[in-house]
Design a binder for these strands. Structure first.
Lengths: 234, 234
DNA sequence: CAGAATTTGTACGTATGTATG
DNA sequence: TCATACATACGTACAAATTCT
C-alpha cells in the first residue's frame, strides 16, 4: 500500500475506534512525519483525504479536529454497493433476481446513457427485501461487451464484486441523480407499497477508470425506506 | 488569488465555454507548468480539484479528460444556497418570509443539532415559489449568538450572503440528510401540494470553519420539484 | 502588548516509479 | 524501445493564523 494510504487508514481506524475522540486534535503534521518517517507532503495528502471524506476539519494555525465519527458509518458518499452498505448496517436483507435478459438500447435509454442506439445491454431486475418487506427495485443496464459471463448466478450475489475481482475492471466514478417519480408498473408489481403512490429514484451512471460508461442503474425506493446522507463542502 | 485557484478557475471557464470539449484532453501537467510558470505540485493541486468536483477524469499515462460539462451546472455538490442555485439555472423564483421569530431549542431540536436545550435560536420559515407555484418550504434554525442582526430584511434576501459578507463568517461544511416524510401542517399550509401526501426533506447541519454548528435547516420539497445530482467517487 | 513557538497554507524543486501508446 | 504523462515521495522556504510566554 501507499504510504499516504497507510497513514490515512490508520487514522480512520483510530477515529472509528474512538482512540481519537470527536472534537479532539489528531497529531500535528510534524508529529505524523516523525511517526511515519514521511515527508510533509505525504502526511498532508493523507490528512486532506480525511477532510474530503468528512472525518476531520483542518483549521489554519490550530490543528486538525475530529468530526462526529458516528455519521461516517451511515454515509453514502462514494460509490457503495447495496451489499457493502447492508453489511455495514447489519440489516436482514434478501435480494431476489426478478429478471435477467439481453436487450438493445432503445432511443430513451441510449440518450440517457450516452451510447449508440441498439447497443447490446444486459438488463437485470432485482428486488431487495429488508426486514420482511420488498422496498427497493434495482434495474441495472450493463454494457454487454464489458461484462462477459454476467449470468443469474452472478446477479444473485454482488455484481460489483464480480466486476472488480473476477473481470479486473476498475470502477472510478458515477454521476448520481436523485428524484421522486409516480409509481410505475414495476413498482406496483414488485414492491409492498402500502398505498404510497410515489417512489424515490436514484439513477446511477457508473464509469470505469478509463472513462467508459459501464452501467446505468435505477434504484426505485419506497418513500419511507429511503435515506441518504453525505457531507458537502463549500 | 492563489496560483492553484487561478489555474483551476481558468480551466473551469474553459470547460464551461467548451473551449475544452467533452472527451478532450486538457493540457498536460508539463504544459500547464510552463503556461503558468508554476511548479508541478501546484498544477497537480489544481487538476486534483477539477477531478474532485467532477469536471475531469485523470487517467494514468494518458492524460486528463473532460467529462460532460452540462451536468456540472445543475450540480448540488458543495454547499450552494438557494439563491445561487437559481441564479445559475435562470428560473423565475420568488421567496417569501412566512415567519421569523426567536425561539429556544426544545429537546428534539437540541438533540438533532447537538446543542444544549434552551439554546436561543432564530427560526425562519420561507416559502419558495418557482414559476408561479409554491413548491419548497425552508425552515432555518440559526444559533442566535452567531447571527446578530438577522431580521426580516436580511431574510428576504440571501442569508448566506449576509453571514459571509456582512458578518465575515466562513461556512465550511454541512452534513446533509435526504429522506421522504408524510406532509405535515406547514406543508399543507404553505405548499401547492396538488394532492401529494409526501414531501422530500433535505436536512442540513451547517458548520463554520472553526467547527461550530451554526444552523440547522429543513428544506421541504414538493415531490415533483425535487432534483439532486452529484458525482460519487470510489 | 510584543515576541516566540506551533501549526497549517502555498509554492518551489528533484528523483524515481508506473501506465500508455 | 522510447517518449509522454500521471503517481508517489522526498526535501526546502516562506507566509499566515493561532497560541503561549
Amino acid at each position: 500500500m501507499n504510504k499516504y494510504n497507510q497513514i490515512y487508514s490508520d487514522i480512520v481506524a483510530d477515529i472509528d475506534n474512538q482512540r481519537f475522540a470527536q472534537g479532539e486534535r489528531i497529531p500535528s503534521e510534524t508529529e505524523l512525519m516523525s511517526q511515519y518517517q514521511a515527508s510533509r507532503g505525504t502526511v498532508r495528502k493523507a490528512v486532506d483525504m480525511l477532510q474530503e471524506r468528512g472525518y476531520v476539519q483542518k483549521i489554519h494555525g490550530k490543528g486538525v479536529y475530529v468530526l462526529k465519527p458516528g455519521n461516517i458509518e451511515f454515509q453514502l458518499s462514494g460509490i457503495v454497493s447495496f451489499q457493502e452498505m447492508n453489511d455495514r448496517m447489519g440489516r436482514q436483507v434478501v435480494s431476489q433476481v426478478a429478471a435477467l435478459e439481453a436487450v438493445l438500447a432503445d432511443a430513451a435509454l441510449a440518450r440517457q446513457m450516452g451510447v449508440a442506439e441498439a447497443t447490446p445491454l444486459v438488463k437485470i431486475k432485482r428486488v431487495r427485501n429488508i426486514d420482511g418487506e420488498n422496498v427497493i427495485v434495482d434495474i441495472n443496464h450493463f454494457v454487454a461487451e464489458l461484462v462477459p459471463g454476467l449470468d443469474a448466478g452472478v446477479a444473485a450475489g454482488s455484481i460489483y464484486h464480480y466486476i472488480e475481482q473476477q473481470l479486473g475492471l476498475t470502477i472510478s466514478y458515477a454521476q448520481r441523480i436523485i428524484e421522486a417519480q409516480p409509481c410505475n408498473e414495476d413498482d406496483r408489481q414488485y414492491l409492498d407499497l402500502n398505498g404510497m403512490d410515489h417512489v424515490i429514484v436514484v439513477k446511477n451512471l457508473t464509469h470505469l477508470y478509463d472513462g467508459r460508461l459501464f452501467e446505468y442503474t435505477e434504484s426505485r425506493h419506497r418513500l419511507d425506506k429511503f435515506y441518504f446522507t453525505d457531507i458537502a463542502r463549500r
